[in-house]
Nucleic acid binder design. Structure first.
Lengths: 231, 231
DNA sequence: GGAATGGTGTTGTAATTCCAACATCTTATC
DNA sequence: GATAAGATGTTGGAATTACAACACCATTCC
């Protein structure tokens, strides 16, 4: 059994709890009807349509979020890492028309709030309530933008265009002409939704064509490609 | 010149202003240092790096959000419809590492809040502040999930897999075996990032193969495709 | 050292997609 | 009815990708 202080310790450094102190946390636990739940590995935590108004945060362990098709075929959307604490709920809870399943990744402990209270207008607004909502907005915006970047890259029709779109973004983020990618080749191929070997081959061609230069994870974009390849 | 009452009239029915009354609105205008701005068609409203902490809402007109590559090549991310009011800012403002440009779509009027006050903890928390943040979370979550669905479809390697993924989602949302899509063929092809004619051709094959049936925008999924095509 | 492992690059073939062009059908519009 | 415009379906050749198989290199482990 873990006490409230123990739970707070595991959450306090996450972006969602930015500027939330222990006293705020205690009030929150009371005000939002917090409940601690534990799950066995692979146990279903929740699915769309059930308890849509709960707001559940991973305290310990982790969770997988799957999209579920009409026929029950699942596609892995996101992994909530063990010990990463935050926000199953911040990004997925409380909406209609979503079809997902959330499954525990190993032994998992969560904190469940009453979502109606979280998103409802308080008669006696508390500072922590406003702060938590502001934190949620920040966390959501970041995730939203990352996903949009991803979609922009994947939307390109050819492997070359996908690579240029992605590498251009990396270069921008690095603020330098030479930059290092966080992915190895397989991960980069998965991220861009192309075949790894085909991607390697395309990288070779681009190097020979003088478009880019690279060595391992270090890349450099040399020439400005025709606009229509990037657009 | 439009007065505050006129602005409120244009915003009050949007999701972002759910449960926000006129008195709340007036307080908000004061508390968050609201300023009204107008833009000429195609005028740049803002770009990443400039005024990152402002929170700007379209009151009248509209806006295009572009991603901008290292070389200045722009990709259209999103169109904020004329008169649709809400939320340039709700989804894009206040983050680092975003490279975008926002351009007015026709004559446009906006409302600019001080983002630091919007996301900052208030010393004297107001009910409208909490309500607005809760509204932002709802709006963001919805947009986030829609984008995720989009990414799931586009991530599939073949046109057939993209179609099945998309149609499966439509079928789920309709709660019926037969359903109508909101897109015409060209829009559907753009959404799935494939060529229209190739998509039409693939639809024909799928119909002949007995996987689906369709007539115009009406579709029906007949057989469960092999799991590996959908996964 | 030798073997195993994981990351990377190359190649050839089969499959898929893009692209352009055209045919068909429906729906305005006059 | 005649015409135009728009959406949809079809086809064939060129371009691109997926897939499988293998070579190469560095690291790790015994």
């Amino acid at each position: 059994m873990v006490d409230q202080a123990g739970i707070f310790e595991k959450l306090k450094d996450t972006p969602l709890f930015h500027k939330i102190g222990y006293e705020d946390f205690l009030k929150m636990m009371d005000c939002w009807n917090a409940q601690v739940k534990t799950y066995l590995p692979d146990e279903t935590i929740t699915r769309s349509g059930e308890a849509d108004y709960d707001f559940e945060i991973v305290v310990e362990g982790g969770a997988f979020v799957y999209q579920e098709s009409y026929f029950g075929v699942r596609t892995l959307l996101r992994a909530k890492g063990r010990g990463e604490s935050t926000t199953i709920g911040t990004e997925e809870f409380l909406d209609d028309g979503m079809h997902y399943v959330i499954v525990a990744n190993g032994q998992t402990m969560t904190l469940v709030f009453d979502g109606k209270k979280v998103l409802g207008a308080c008669e006696h607004p508390c500072p922590f309530h406003t702060q938590m909502l502001a934190n949620m907005v920040v966390v959501l915006r970041r995730a939203h933008y990352r996903m949009f970047e991803h979609l922009v890259h994947v939307s390109k029709r050819t492997t070359r265009a996908k690579l240029l779109s992605y590498l251009s973004t990396c270069q921008q983020a690095s603020h330098a002409s030479k930059f290092e990618t966080p992915f190895n080749r397989q991960q980069m191929a998965d991220y861009l939704c192309v075949d790894r070997s085909a991607m390697c081959s395309e990288l070779s061609k681009m190097k020979k064509a003088g478009l880019i230069d690279y060595d391992g994870r270090w890349f450099k974009i040399i020439e400005h490609p025709a606009e229509d390849r990037l657009a």
